[in-house]
């Protein structure tokens, strides 16, 4: 079904005023600042110089800082993001999805879901669910099974 785009126009007075005030301040600063003419890059090879700058090599014709450390740090951050995305999206071993009744930690959960959550904890420690009361026994059993599988 295709529909025409419709605007959602409610009363957003305060957020609108906040954003507008920020824009007015920024615009006043930018328009009163004085800049000389843009220097540009001349005819220097920009993409090749980006490559030299990113790996902290000498040879780039355009001046720049070196970014090797930042490159490595961002490499680690991307790996962490990959691991986090996989952790959020993976299926549990019994076919359940993460979060269906298992991560919900308010008082409304059942004993089975508490046991599932304890079993899926990474440390798989029996005292991880000492605060779950009725389900601690089941939680400990499933945690022990998890340890057995992991070994």
């Amino acid at each position: 079904m295709t529909t025409r785009p419709r605007l959602k126009l409610g009363s957003h007075l305060v957020p609108g005023l906040v954003a507008l005030a920020l824009f007015v301040v920024l615009a006043a600063v930018f328009l009163t600042a004085s800049f000389e003419n843009a220097q540009g890059f001349g005819g220097a090879p920009i993409t090749a110089s980006i490559g030299y700058a990113m790996f902290d090599l000498a040879g780039g014709e355009v001046p720049s800082d070196g970014f090797l450390i930042a490159f490595e740090i961002i490499d680690l951050v991307l790996i962490a993001a990959l691991a986090a995305a996989v952790m959020l999206a993976r299926r549990e071993s019994d076919g359940k999805l993460v979060g269906v009744e298992s991560i919900r930690t308010d008082g409304g959960r059942s004993a089975d879901s508490a046991a599932d959550y304890a079993g899926s904890a990474d440390d798989a420690d029996a005292d991880a669910d000492t605060d779950t009361g009725v389900s601690s026994k089941e939680g400990a059993i499933s945690a022990d099974e998890k340890v057995g599988e992991a070994n």
């Binding site: 800049f35 843009a38 220097q39 540009g40 890059f41 001349g42 920009i46 110089s49 980006i50 700058a53 990113m54 780039g60 355009v62 001046p63 720049s64 800082d65 970014f67």
Partner: peptide, 10 residues
């Protein structure tokens, strides 16, 4: 572009 320096692009 203003300062002819590639730091911003990287």
């Amino acid at each position: 572009f203003q300062y002819g320096n590639l730091t911003g692009q990287v």
